[in-house]
Design a protein around this nucleic acid. Structure first.
Lengths: 341, 341
DNA sequence: GGCTGCTATGGTTGCGCTGTCATGAGATTT
DNA sequence: AAATCTCATGACAGCGCAACCATAGCAGCC
């Protein structure tokens, strides 16, 4: 084992081998390959050729340890089951890649303990920055971040306290906005179908905002149905079915925690022959493409998830260049009227 | 800049500081924190307390460089726009996390050049293993992998040549299977709606298999519509619409490159009042939950993407433990009859 | 009583690279 | 012609940690 490891390592060409082959010192080879200038054209060519011939791949562990800046950015997301975070990750990756950085990923599953462990793990790689969609906010995590002293962007929500930077929008306001919209359309009794709220505190914030928005004119939320598990089309279908079965009276409109849940609701109505929005109005959240492709486009609130990821990564890179982007950057939601409410 | 970096680093507690505080040598502290045994109970406790008090986070760059095994696994996927790869990543992460490993991610965008650069970049972090959904197979990439000499798993398809290990199924066979199923149902003329095929060679393999399957009994593919961009519900809707407009005669059945495309097809039929499957039969691929939640469940081929990711990660970990898993591991597809064909 | 074997600990070295300072050769200035 | 400046290169040290080998103490054994 030990020997095999050693053998493996020995087989990988090092900078020193490249240098020897090019007939220069290590440091010159290093400079040549990093391209900072300050190396003669001819030397540069020799070193590059030597590197190519040896199939040299620099060892960034050593490079970073020796004082270079790490080019990894730690990313902690609560879930990948929700397409929302895949979108965020996509935006993140695209910006990081452009700067020559790579995300190193951890999934917290909305679990505080796991989140803290991930934080430790990722910090142990000495990343240049950190992007997190916090699932919770333990004191220990705060302490770690404080001690680590690197650029940190918290994404998705901007309502909670921010340690360093934040990118996103207020989920509470989004919930309110939908309440006001539905009230404006004349609906007066409301239901809510959501996925697991004990874990997804942003969905919870939306629900609270929705409640507050209704309360503004004294309207009521007559039924709430929280399903277990991550949001999905089948779960929304099942959720609406259950909600309607349980309620003595059908609400005018139902707000869903996510568009895929809402699409499930639409499917349920199709299945039982309930007209939308005349029999019941449905509204979702996130502006997923599936909702907009329905024969009747879904009424929803669009969030720009990919852009949130992109901006978050950009903030990290800005800071690494010595600039100081806005502490809180709004990437706001937008209500899409659609046709289901 | 240079000084600020140095300052930053100096502020982070090192193993030596922990050791000093615990009154032991560095190496003893190291052993204590890594938990290999061989340290007296009382010493262990002292070291652990010292680490806790200093908020010590080990520097794995140094650890790995000094001979420890890296606990990062490079992952290259072609896209995150397709939910399929988010699922794969989810499976990957869950297995890696269980073993104390972390994925470091690159997205190739189905681009050979970018894939090769990513490969270099990820290898420069000296990962313990590599998982790739190859978008292409350049000679240069092969050479890099060969030279790197680490466990590599290629995922999704098992038809192409494998450098080291492979996990997935034959997309060609999947295409064939759907052809045979549809023929068995009595359909005789066929259309195909797909997303960009020049880039997604697995979708292309499915189409080819589908063609071959039809040819087995002399049936024909009367119309093909390839859309630009990643697969999505709106794109499928638009695709079917275009296909039907272009064709002089409506085919009996249409095969889609992906379930979200097929759901778009279903929506199109709903919109124009075309009965499914009596007016036209529709079939998808991947077994996404959205298709199964439709009032009439989609006829499709289910792929177990999360499991593919999980098994791929498991293979890497197995190999790191010195075991030798099967070179080619099948995580097979399964035809789901549904109700749309 | 000398031998082995075991546990707990430490000293030294080196992983591969880059920061810092030093050097030498040639070009430019005064 | 001496002083200065630029450019290209090199020597050396050290990043933080773990592998390797050594040592000391103590029990058990014939």
């Amino acid at each position: 084992m030990a020997t095999s490891q050693k053998d493996t390592r020995n087989r990988r060409p090092t900078l020193s081998q490249v240098a020897k082959r090019a007939g220069v010192s290590e440091i010159t080879a290093s400079r040549a390959l990093r391209g900072g200038g300050l190396v003669a054209q001819e030397t540069l060519a020799r070193v590059e050729q030597a590197a190519r011939m040896l199939n040299y791949v620099p060892n960034r562990l050593a490079g970073t340890l020796a004082g270079g800046a790490s080019r990894q950015v730690g990313v902690i997301l609560p879930s990948l089951s929700n397409i929302v975070f895949a979108d965020v990750l996509k935006g993140l990756e695209s910006r990081l890649e452009g700067g020559g950085y790579h995300p190193i990923l951890g999934i917290s599953h909305y679990d505080a303990e796991r989140e803290e462990r991930l934080l430790r793990d990722l910090l142990s790689w000495r990343p240049a920055g950190l992007v997190l969609a916090p699932a919770c906010n333990s004191a220990a995590s705060r302490a770690l971040l404080q001690a680590a002293d690197l650029p940190v962007v918290e994404i998705m929500d901007i309502d909670t306290d921010t340690a360093d930077m934040a990118v996103g929008f207020s989920h509470r306001s989004a919930g309110r906005a939908m309440a006001h919209f539905l009230l404006g359309r004349g609906y007066r009794t409301f239901g809510y179908v959501g996925h697991d709220i004990t874990t997804d505190f942003r969905a919870k914030a939306r629900l609270e905002g929705f409640r507050e928005g209704l309360a503004d004119i004294g309207a009521t939320l007559t039924g709430i149905r929280i399903m277990e598990g991550p949001s999905s089309v089948p779960l929304g279908k099942q959720g609406l079915e259950t909600l309607l079965r349980e309620l003595p009276e059908r609400p005018d409109a139902v707000f869903f925690s996510n568009d895929d849940m809402a699409v499930g609701g639409v499917f349920h109505c199709q299945t039982v022959g309930l007209a939308v929005p005349d029999g019941i109005a449905l509204a979702g959240f996130n502006g997923l493409s599936i909702g907009q492709a329905l024969p009747t486009p879904l009424t929803t609130i669009a969030s720009n998830r990919e852009r949130i990821g992109f901006v978050a990564a950009d903030n990290i890179l800005q800071r690494l260049l010595g600039k100081t982007p806005e502490r809180i950057q709004r990437v706001d939601f937008k209500l899409i009227p659609g046709g289901t409410a």
